[in-house]
């Protein structure tokens, strides 16, 4: 079963904020390359955030599952089902991303995504 590790909440809060900015920046048409800063933040989270990250190849990865299929075997997301049907669900809103803690080739989910799902038929 999954190994449970404790991650300082401040890391998760920061990553959630970066994710929020990333979502907002994606909808902007602006000339100041905000997306570049967001990408840079993402890379820092993956490569540099944790002490000795470069040596131990450990860090965080976050993933936006928007548009992916959903069913209740997916324990990487906490879902609220919108609409009436519970069949053929797809993720339509992502409030928080999936955050994984990576250590070498192994990674563990330290934050489940918080999502809203809807039946494909109702889209």
């Amino acid at each position: 079963m999954s190994e449970q590790i404790k991650v300082a909440k401040i890391y998760l809060d920061m990553i959630n904020q970066v994710f929020e900015i990333e979502k907002k920046a994606a909808g902007l048409r602006e000339p100041n390359s905000i997306q570049r800063n967001v990408n840079r933040l993402r890379e820092m989270i993956e490569q540099d955030l944790l002490p000795a990250a470069a040596e131990g190849q450990h860090g965080f990865i976050y993933h936006n599952p928007l548009g992916e299929n959903y069913n209740i075997t997916r324990t990487d997301c906490e879902a609220s089902i919108a609409g009436e049907s519970t069949e053929n669900l797809v993720i339509t809103e992502v409030i928080k991303p999936i955050i994984r803690y990576c250590n070498g080739p192994v990674n563990i989910i330290v934050q489940k995504a918080v999502v809203v799902v809807k039946s494909k038929g109702s889209l």
Binding site: S2, T73, D76, I98, R100, I108
Partner: peptide, 10 residues
């Protein structure tokens, strides 16, 4: 179950 905690057949 998947070891990272992301999948569970029930």
């Amino acid at each position: 179950t998947r070891a990272d905690g992301g999948f569970d057949t029930g």
